[in-house]
């Protein structure tokens, strides 16, 4: 068996609307290995969350998976429904949402929310669960963890609450964590701490992570590989170092150009002109061609470029510059 915890094959999510069928996720492919962090980037509306929700089986109607396969630890899970999928959530796939202020039930003590999750998935006694809950809080860096079990969410700061959320997502020891913009809603000062925490915990346990974010800086420092999404499609997929230093897809290049990166020094920030096409008006061929400075006729025609095992879905990938000499 391969080492992949998660394998996504040609995953397609569709939303039927009166104006036609929208495809917020369109035939994407990637694997995440044990202990690996895969960053997912792309501008707002690119389908990042939709892909994550599809994996954990929490797509909001009317969106649904209409094609492709999702494999988790060698088991196909995209066709599971109801109870079967529910038993998988929390136990095999954990999820961390964007806003820690609204992710926790305000009326339940955090200790109860933790034990509830553990009792659901693990075969342990209530006492044992409570002990493990305290240990879990301690592990995510909550001071005096045992005493805080009886606290309510509002008694914690935003950063502390996101730590609780991470403890909750990890408490049944899932093999995959989907973190959907886990730091976007937090103070800049605590963002780095939360990312470092997530990274450490997952490395220690060998948990695979799907890290969805807008922040190329976070990706560059945290992820092993990165997938760039554009209009529901995968534009580029590769090792973080390669993608950041030598983007192949013109969209990735634009994305890097518009992100201030410490490693690149303070270059002038570029912006990609125009905006992502709406799902209701997808262009023929490559979805990026209307904004692309290198676009040729072939880019405007079907069939659109695919990744096909390579790094980027582009007819004219940016050539690697001659090897830099340090």
């Amino acid at each position: 068996m391969s080492e992949a915890v998660l394998s996504i094959r040609n995953l397609t999510v569709e939303i039927p609307t009166r104006g036609g069928i929208l495809r917020p996720v369109d035939q994407i492919n990637y694997d995440i290995n044990r202990g690996e962090i895969l960053g997912i980037v792309g501008e707002s509306g690119a389908g990042k969350s939709m892909a994550g929700n599809a994996v954990i089986g929490l797509l909001n109607r009317p969106a649904k998976i209409t094609g492709g396969e999702i494999w988790l630890n060698g088991t196909r899970i995209d066709q599971l429904e109801g109870e079967d999928m529910r038993r998988l959530r929390g136990k095999h796939i954990g999820m961390v949402f964007q806003d820690p202020l609204t992710s926790l039930n305000p009326l339940l003590r955090i200790g109860d929310q933790l034990t509830e999750t553990m009792l659901e998935h693990l075969d342990i006694s209530r006492d044992k669960a409570r002990k493990r809950a305290a240990a879990a809080l301690d592990e995510v860096g909550i001071p005096a963890a045992a005493q805080r079990l009886d606290s309510y969410p509002h008694e914690f700061s935003g950063g502390m609450r996101q730590r609780v959320v991470i403890a909750l997502a990890l408490c049944a020891e899932p093999s995959l964590i989907i973190a959907d913009e886990p730091t976007t809603a937090l103070d800049v000062s605590v963002q780095a701490q939360i990312i470092a925490l997530l990274k450490r915990l997952c490395r220690d346990r060998g948990t695979a992570v799907m890290l969805i974010t807008h922040d190329m800086g976070v990706i560059a420092e945290t992820a092993d590989r990165v997938a760039v999404m554009y209009a529901g499609r995968l534009a580029e997929l590769g090792n973080v170092r390669d993608v950041v230093t030598h983007p192949e897809h013109p969209y990735t290049d634009g994305l890097m150009g518009s992100t201030p990166l410490a490693s690149k020094g303070l270059k002038r920030l570029r912006q990609i002109s125009g905006s992502m096409p709406r799902l209701t008006a997808m262009p023929e061929g490559c979805a990026f061609h209307p904004r692309c400075e290198f676009a040729q006729d072939i880019c405007r025609a079907e069939p659109r470029p695919k990744l096909n095992g390579g790094r980027s879905a582009c007819h004219f990938p940016i050539q690697q510059p001659a090897e830099e000499t340090a």
Binding site: R86, R87, L168
Partner: peptide
């Protein structure tokens, strides 16, 4: 969100409805 998060943790539907 916390209902969604409860579902994402695999809490059973009965508990989501009547507890959360």
């Amino acid at each position: 969100d916390y209902i969604r998060f409860a579902r994402a943790r695999g809490i059973r539907e009965k508990s989501v409805n009547f507890r959360h």
